[in-house]
């Protein structure tokens, strides 16, 4: 599999009154064609900001301060906003966590789907009537693809007339309209009930296989990653702390944070046993010293951990940002 997206040493900063926040600090990652990468982290870990940076959607006071983002052979950081706009929605699409605020409440679903095609699809016929019917046909097809019943009627409805699960499907349908090479799904199921969550995740996995598209699944739910992702990347306080094949990482995590996360998930199988929470809380991202960011909460921390720790090789296709990863093998 060839590399589709390669991010190197990305740094995204926000100037706040409290000081400069490095929300993303030196993140490097690869997404290969057709694969599903899971990105896991708690709130404030920088997982969403990393990918809004890839999309070129970081707004002031935030800015991408350093790094390169190569997508399909082009450095996205060097593109003009027009060139970026041509790629966004056509080659890379992103769905947002909260479908209700991400969709325009004043436009029908059909109108919002048409917008994407008008902006990106050069194959649309020139004549007005032919164009309209082509757009309509394609919209109906997309809604059908994401499993929305009676798509012809649904196209004329507004977002508020749909349930939460249906809205998330509509956002996925809009994102898929131009058959992107990469779909970034930001917490696609967090706002949904578990029976609906299962439907949406299976839909994404199914469409990925059919269209051969790569997917980045941003989530805080390791269970979701375990079932749907080829590789996983764990983020903590703006950095990647561990990455590798999903099964290997979950079976034998090589970073104490990943291990702590896995140990803190309550499971019926653990009844009667104590779950071991990670103590303390995520550090304030303002003015962080260059040392290991997890050491204040780490049960394995030693004095020598008070240095900047790079990503270290941790087995086949695996890396972890921990000086003691050998002890976790």
């Amino acid at each position: 599999m060839t590399v589709l997206l390669e991010v190197t040493s990305l740094r995204t900063e926000f100037a706040t009154r409290a000081g400069l926040v490095r929300a993303v600090d030196g993140v490097s990652l690869q997404v290969r064609r057709g694969e599903c990468l899971g990105v896991v982290g708690e709130s404030g870990s920088g997982k969403s900001v990393t990918f809004t940076s890839v999309m070129g959607l970081v707004r002031s006071p935030g800015k991408v301060a350093a790094g390169t983002i190569f997508f399909d052979g082009r450095d996205l950081c060097q593109l003009s906003s027009e060139e970026m706009r041509a790629i966004r929605g056509r080659d890379i699409a992103m769905t947002m966590q909260d479908a209700l605020t991400a969709l325009n409440p004043a436009l029908t679903v059909g109108e919002q789907m048409a917008e994407v095609m008008v902006a990106h699809d050069e194959t649309l016929p020139a004549g007005r009537a032919a164009r309209r019917s082509a757009i309509r046909e394609r919209s109906v097809e997309m809604l059908g693809l994401v499993g929305i019943p009676s798509p012809e009627t649904r196209l004329r409805q507004y977002p508020h007339e749909f349930s939460g699960g249906m809205r998330q499907r509509i956002m996925i349908a809009i994102a898929l309209t131009c058959r992107p090479k990469l779909l970034i799904a930001d917490e696609p199921t967090t706002a949904l009930d578990v029976t609906i969550q299962a439907q949406v995740l299976e839909l994404i996995t199914d469409i990925r296989a059919r269209l051969g598209m790569a997917v980045v699944l941003i989530t805080h739910d390791l269970g979701v990653v375990a079932e749907h992702c080829d590789r996983v990347m764990v983020m903590y306080a703006g950095q990647v702390v561990e990455e590798g094949p999903t099964a290997a990482v979950i079976e034998r995590p090589r970073h104490p944070y990943t291990r702590g996360l896995l140990a803190s998930i309550p499971r019926p199988a653990l009844r009667g046993q104590r779950i071991e929470p990670i103590m303390g809380q995520v550090p304030d991202l303002v003015g962080l010293p260059p040392q290991c960011r997890f050491h204040s909460r780490c049960p394995m921390a030693r004095p020598e951990c008070l240095v900047a720790v790079p990503m270290l090789p941790a087995g086949p296709g695996r890396q972890a940002r921990c000086l003691r990863l050998e002890d976790l093998a």
């Binding site: 708690e42 709130s43 805080h220 390791l222 702590g260 996360l261 140990a263 803190s264 998930i265 309550p266 104590r274 779950i275 071991e276 929470p277 990670i278 103590m279 809380q281």
Partner: peptide
Amino acid sequence: LDVSIQAQIIA
């Protein structure tokens, strides 16, 4: 709550 904090509160 986030996973790690959730575990603290459950405990």
